[in-house]
Amino acid sequence: MDFELNEDQQAILEAVDRLLEQHAGPTRAIELFANNTYDSELQQALEESGFSNILNDMAMEEGKLAGLEAALVVEAVARAAGVCAIGSQIMLAPLLTGKELTDQALEGPVAICLRSQIEKPVPLRYGANAKTLLVLADSNSDDDLEVITLGDGDMESVKSNFGYPMGRLVNTSVSGTKLGADVASKVRNWWRLSLAIETVGTMEAALNHTVEYVKQRRQFGRAIGSFQAIQHRLSLCAIQVEGSRWLAREAAYHNAQDEAVANAAAFAIAAADKVFGESHQMSGAVGFTREFDLHVWSMRLHTLRQELGGLGGHRKAVVAARWG
């Protein structure tokens, strides 16, 4: 067991951080968000640098590290508020490579939802820009997966306050290739894991932003970060972020097993609510403004909290995996 990055992992993280410095960050996220726009440049840059392909079949067969390396990349992109469907691109799409799809190529961006969300369409992350839609059964007791190639006009753009460009299905008669329970359960687990990992990166950035703010902001003649009432609550947030981070990384290392991903998501998604509340409370009124970067990460946390059945769904998955 070793909690330090090895040389390869360090190199991957440094390379992706360099790329993100150029193509991501809160300023760019705010600019893109104003028009509900997807960051095709970032996606292209990640693809050209080989990050999108980090978790391919071969790597997964060779060992456990590919899942962890993919997780490190997803975490970094989330921390940098990249406007790009990195979780599905890196962690879900590779699971379908080589499957007999109606359309052989699985084109990104990839959006994902539950079956009931096709029947009663809801806003989906990156939905308006998605070229592929993965539809998973609502319950894993009767698991299946449908891979749908989206055409023009199948989705509509949706205005949202929750940090990601959103789209909703308008053509509810779309259909695609149906895949069985085996691949569906893998996709379900990696989706759960990608939610946990994205939540970790997003929470960490929101917390760091808040910590810096309370160090600078002075009231009553002192930095508000020097008050114990603030310090204890931020310490509790830090504990939540650290617990989430290491559970998710460990689950990624073990290639997204049922219970490990459920624990990681259950912990991270509960933590997200706490970090959202405390980071906004401590940032005061300015924290609600568009000119203050906090919202870039904080509002996203609520989106992540809604997917795959939300907190209750993840906790049910924990119970099912552990105790049947």
Binding site: F3, G243, G312, V318
Partner: peptide, 30 residues
């Protein structure tokens, strides 16, 4: 197990146990 509140609390507690475990492991690693 038909009580959603009990199921929710069991899931919450299990995730907490695992988070505590992995954070202790981090200290052992140090």
């Amino acid at each position: 197990m038909d009580d959603p509140i009990i199921v929710d609390r069991l899931g919450e507690a299990r995730a907490l146990c695992e988070a505590a475990r992995v954070l202790v492991y981090k200290v052992i690693d140090l």
